[in-house]
Nucleic acid binder design. Sequence first.
RNA 1: GCGCGAUUAGCUCAGUUGGUAGAGCAACUCAUUUACACUGAGAAGGUCGCAGGUUCGAGUCCUGCAUCGCGCACCA
Length: 720
Amino acid sequence: MENPANIPEKLFKPYSAAGTEGRIYKLWEKSGFFNPDTCIEKGHTKPDAESFSIIMPPTNANGSLHAGHGLVMTLEDIMVRYKRMQGYKTLWLPGLDHAGFETQVVYEKKLEKEDRSRFDMSHEELYKEILDFTLTNSTNIKSQIRSMGASCDWSREKFTLDPDIVTTVYSTFKKLSEDKLLYRGKRIISWCPKHQTSFSDLEIADEERMDPLYYLKYGPFVIATVRPETKFGDKYVVMHPLDPRYSEYANGQKIDLEWINGPITATIIKDDSIDMEFGTGVMTITPWHDAADFAIAERHKLDKEQIIDEKGKLLPIAGEFSGMHISKARKLIVEKLQTKGLVEKIDDKYKHVVRTCYKCGTLIEPQIKSQWFVKMKPLAERALEKINADEINYIPEQYKKITTYWLENIIDWNISRQIVWGIPIPAKICDSCEEGFVDLDNTQTTCTTCGKELRQDTDTFDTWFSSSQWPFAALGYPESPDFKNYYSTDVLETAGEIIFFWVSRMIMLGLYVTGEIPFETVYLHGLVLDAKGQKMSKSKGNVINPLDLTSKYGTDAFRIGMVVGNTPGTSLALAEDRIRGYSKFANKMWNVTRFVLENTYDLPTDEKVTLDAADQKSLDELYALIKEITVEMDEYKFYIVAEKLYHHFWHSFADVIIERSKTKITAGGDAKRSAQALLREELNILIRALHPFMPFVTEEIWSMIDRSETPLMVSSWPQA
RNA sequence: GCGCGAUUAGCUCAGUUGGUAGAGCAACUCAUUUACACUGAGAAGGUCGCAGGUUCGAGUCCUGCAUCGCGCACCA
């Protein structure tokens, strides 16, 4: 076959993503250009260039890439490649997360299958097994991140359990303690009876349920409750001080009455948190197992008594029901109350909200426990100042409102978890007076309050406590040059779902420790849903594995398919058609390249060509487009840039300009040269502009159209 | 209960400061040997959730309502 243009053989076949992507990624890695220092050494970035940095949300080391990750990697890589091409000193720092609770749950399931249980293992044994498990699996996720084309600097990769990270987390813990922002409190916490650990308020899911509401005779009163099984210890009866129905009773007044297990003496409490409209306007309280009741008990300094143990079984106070699981006990207790004539009525269509473990759906059983808490108000106030001064740019903007509302109403953060897999809390506990002492150097042995012997705290930190320090910890705060060069980072890109869990807490802790905001822009993407707009879940069987799509249609097709029309914050329905369409686009680019090479080889690259009017107009339009999209890139409107580039490439360049060039090339002379020059320029500019979106196919094409031997990833973003 | 968001073509969604509605996919009609069938040309498809209001002019601004989704909340 004739081939005067000396066109590579592969260009005569359809574009093969599978035959290209792995090779290109290796080439990039070998070049070292993911590392900004190399870009400077080799002269692609000026040493005094402005920096641009993104810290990759640490990926669960033990996990597998899901559709949401696919979007994270795509969006962040687009930003990073764009800035790198523009000459910024660009760092994208990858990291892995030990993902404390999440990983422990996965491991527990594995143990269960093997007929083992974590409760039969020592701390050390379990920790070591999970560590091995995690480290073994971590190569998997890393190769999946690579397959997405992520141009992150692997030489700077961090893991949340790296010793230097742990050191930073410990020093923050100590600083909080010294600044009196940390306390060990015996307070009501959310407890999951299945997982045997406490949670912060964020790990709790609300669920609307229909349950019977029992109206029980309590001496002269009638009280309404959905949880008769907690009522054994109720010896306080509470009503509103202004409720005329109960004006004859005084605060503190004692009354004798017959209750579940016999006669008791109850005390009347008047508290204005009581809603006079609800039920009878009277309730009894269970301070050990209800946050609202706990608050009332605190206000009036009332006794608190534990009724239910950590596994959800009734304690001896329940008399004949002692040792019984609450799920079984309720029915029997109601029966007994009925026998005693203490049930006034049952409203069996009562709609209310229960709190469940976000992971297993088990009903949360509030318990009073000694735990470490961070005082959040002072931290939140500093964050609010910065946010209200617009020092942090939220995309989309509505997240600013959501964040400020949360910060204004923040409650203290319980950072203790009763799980093994995590960063151990460096503290000593006095079991006798329930004091806790921060002890990084492991030197304190006796309680300074009561003199008794201390034990090591066996709890670990909430994973989010360490990941909230990630931007500065991963950059080597406080001494590393990277910290000085790249903090504050430019963009934090993650799922809108973790706005409170992670983003807001990073702002607070970043500000607290370093005095600076951790990032200037927060870009939050929405959920990735299935083709029908349903949330993906294993139980529904509608989970789309991004790697199936990339292996079928190519990573480039997947990437641009994820981006086009996907506005920040809005959830995306991931339909296969969507991705398939863009695999055709990669092939279109491939064929266009062949046409351009075949038809321009005889035009010397250094020849000055004057374009004719029509061609000049086309070129002006292209420059106008580049100008527009450069602005839109800076505004993070990738969804529109991707669409415009796609549209221009296909429907202007291919359909109009190439078609027009055919007759001009046949005509020869100036018309031919004008057409040829335009073809070359269009292709050159569009391939560069498309690179952040479709890095593989563009890099491959670049190697055929550019003679400089500079990889496209460090070539320049087109100038308008 | 409070708050946030959504409601635009069959589907998924754009629509910047108000100026006669756009894209992709799907469906429809033609075209078929040189860049590309992973193609080209063309046509069709929407009283922009409903009701008011501001305006010369509203998908866009204001008010109310409806439906869906999501947060937050110590009414037992």
